[in-house]
Design a binder for these strands. Structure first.
Lengths: 226, 226
DNA sequence: GTAAGGCATATTGTTGACAATCCACGAGTT
DNA sequence: AACTCGTGGATTGTCAACAATATGCCTTAC
């Protein structure tokens, strides 16, 4: 392991990050029961910091822990994934509205620039949905922080996105969707640029609603089994 | 049998509960820097479980922890308290809508019954705002769980309510508000009973909006200093 | 007199060993 | 043959000692 680690980062934080990414990337399959000692040897940690990290992960709902029985990765059902999108709809709607009221002109310009780069990425990497997903994540990330609502950003970035991303990695976005999503992103930013919070909220809600319907359709088609 | 306590409760859970209530009740003042050893002696714990609990509290945003520098209770500014209510508005709006779609008839009847008991409490205990606050908490708690949206309930009950309650304890609700709030509660339940999700969402949002404006007014009057 | 730097102390972060608890397997009984 | 009960093993929960780091005070130089 290359020790690039910052000294201000404690071992427990390190463990937390490792585990979180491992869960999100799918290296630790949902429902899988994992022993503490195995995790220790896998990430070169001792049980103290590991347990601390496990506690945090549990508190965030990525793990379930039964006393003396062990830890297992949470397995989210299809219904629960849909519910997640319903929550995103209202929370990101609020984020968009507040972002329209509070983002600086600079931030908005920057956001527009990133949209251009996302478009370029989609154009050249035809079908490489991964980058599109990263771009999408980047977009929503900026809106969340742009809202200047600390707790809102914390809940979105710390709780919801990680759970959603758990499925992003196994779930390729459908063919025409990236282009459409980009268009929707543009409209939202436009509304923000015009400082029209109400419109930004409406458009964001519709955007996430569309994404949810897209996933629902896939599940019904049986393309996506969770 | 002296062991009324469930054995499935681990020391870390115990520590977590103790600390959480201590923070919420104000026994640990916001901004106060607290040493680990002091907490250990105070709650009869060892540092292992304590640290695990601290990690969870930090992850939930009730504590801030700087490496090697110690732990201190988070201090929420007036603005941030307002922001909390903005989040509640959209999230509980969603909860109300989903509750209208999914609560059982039994649950709704039960909810109505609790509203009656709340009314009785307000009538007899004139000015005892504490019970009203508890009743209010109870009401919102039921709506959240009634939504059948696991993650939504988790975020509301696990994250937001505890932060809001931090201030409930020092902040007596204003004179006429309990009665008004109760009336709003009734309208919401009525909408739920009629399975009108859209209306329930609207009414709940307006209800929380009113509560927020009430607090904003108090802050501007200087009655409430945070 | 003030500011910068180094040292001591106290506090946090980490480690490894010990104790308590659950799960699985096997034996005995119906 | 199937079910229940008991025991062994493994895993988790807990503890106390060790190491690393930041804060505060004192000294010293300008």
């Amino acid at each position: 392991m290359a020790e690039v680690q910052l000294q201000t980062q404690t071992r427990a934080d390190e463990a937390f990050d490792c585990l979180q990414t491992a869960i999100v990337k799918g290296d630790l399959a949902p429902g899988e029961k994992i022993g503490e000692v195995e995790l220790c040897s896998r990430f070169n940690l001792t049980r103290g910091p590991l347990r601390e990290a496990l506690g945090r992960l549990e508190s965030r709902g990525l793990l379930v822990r039964r006393p003396h029985a062990g830890v297992k990765v949470v397995s989210v059902s299809a219904d629960e994934l849909i519910e997640l999108y319903r929550i995103r709809e209202v929370m990101e709607g609020l984020a968009a509205r507040q972002a329209a009221e509070r983002m600086t002109d600079e931030e908005i310009q920057d956001l527009l620039a990133t949209l251009d780069s996302h478009e370029a990425m989609i154009e050249e990497a035809q079908g490489q949905a991964y980058y599109q997903a990263e771009g999408d994540y980047d977009f929503h990330h900026r809106i969340a922080t742009g809202s200047r609502n600390t707790k809102l950003a914390q809940m979105l970035l710390g709780d919801l996105y990680y759970m959603v991303r758990m499925y992003r990695y196994r779930l390729s976005t459908s063919a025409g969707r990236p282009h459409m999503a980009l268009g929707e992103h543009r409209s939202i930013v436009e509304a923000i640029a015009q400082r029209d919070g109400e419109l930004a909220e409406f458009l964001m809600k519709r955007h996430i609603n569309a994404a949810r319907q897209n996933i629902e359709k896939k599940i019904q088609e049986g393309v996506l089994t969770i």
